[in-house]
Design a protein around this nucleic acid. Structure first.
Length: 239
DNA sequence: GCGACAG
DNA sequence: ATCTTGTCGC
């Protein structure tokens, strides 16, 4: 069963980039970096992702809970609402978080570790989507992104499991992690209450077959479906 | 000042 | 993110 809810833009949600950056500067200090996080392959792992229909000003979010050992889906929820912020590099969280929070809150069970489609510590102010979501929920979170953003890395060795540091100058803000042999790596960073080593281990445990984590793949399919359902005409009567 | 830039 | 057909390969 998939619960589908509607979201409103929270009162006081930032309107300008300056306000949004101020929120990041205020919340970033609450990120917890000294916990290892849950061990891979145990408990539950939840993927969150969003899809947009800019023409209709709609955003759909999905939270899909997997059994970490079997990667089977155990629960799923979606939320649809207005797009609350424009896309600005470095401020992605303000576009995605209200819908993602609503989807997480609609779940019938605890999410366990949350895997975000984007960055955590690897961020201009060290406070990307995964860290922001972690601070707001208290949940352990990691970010797995498809692109290196503005960061620098050397290509990891071709074998699955190979890593190389993702660098902001000399600071390691995440890792380029090869999840499939000879395929472009993904970019892992810490969100909240999870170590970087453990975040990479989780990402490998979630990629037995494809480049992207099963959590991300499931959440992506789910939020697209939710957006389509919210956009499609359900009034026609026929079998 | 200009371009680049998670999704 | 999103716009988009066929096509090569396991």
């Amino acid at each position: 069963m998939v619960t589908m809810t509607t979201v409103r833009v929270p009162a006081g949600w930032p309107v300008t980039e300056e306000q949004a950056r101020a929120v990041q500067d205020e919340l970033r200090g609450r990120v917890v970096l000294d916990e290892p996080g849950p061990p891979p392959g145990t408990g539950r792992v939840t993927g969150v992702d969003v899809a947009y229909d800019d023409a209709r000003n709609l955003v759909a979010a999905a939270a899909v809970v997997l059994d970490a050992a079997t990667l089977e889906v155990v629960a799923e929820a979606t939320a649809v609402g207005p797009v609350p912020f424009p896309y600005v590099p470095g401020l992605l969280a303000f576009r995605e978080i209200p819908a993602v929070l609503a989807a997480l809150e609609a779940l019938p069970c605890p999410p366990g570790l949350v895997v975000c489609d984007g960055y955590g510590l690897a961020h201009p102010r060290r406070f990307g989507l995964a860290g922001h979501l972690g601070v707001l929920t208290g949940l352990p979170t990691i970010g797995v992104a498809k692109n290196p953003f503005t960061f620098v890395y050397d290509d990891p060795d071709p074998a699955r499991g190979s890593v190389s540091p993702l660098l902001a100058g000399t600071e390691e803000v995440g890792r380029a992690l090869r999840t499939r042999d000879a395929v472009k790596p993904v970019f892992v960073s810490v969100g909240h209450r999870v170590s970087l080593d453990n975040a990479c281990a989780h990402t490998l445990a979630l990629t037995p077959r494809y480049r992207l984590p099963e959590t991300t793949r499931r959440a992506d399919a789910s939020c697209r479906r939710a957006l389509r359902d919210a956009t499609t005409d359900h009034s026609a009567a026929s079998g």
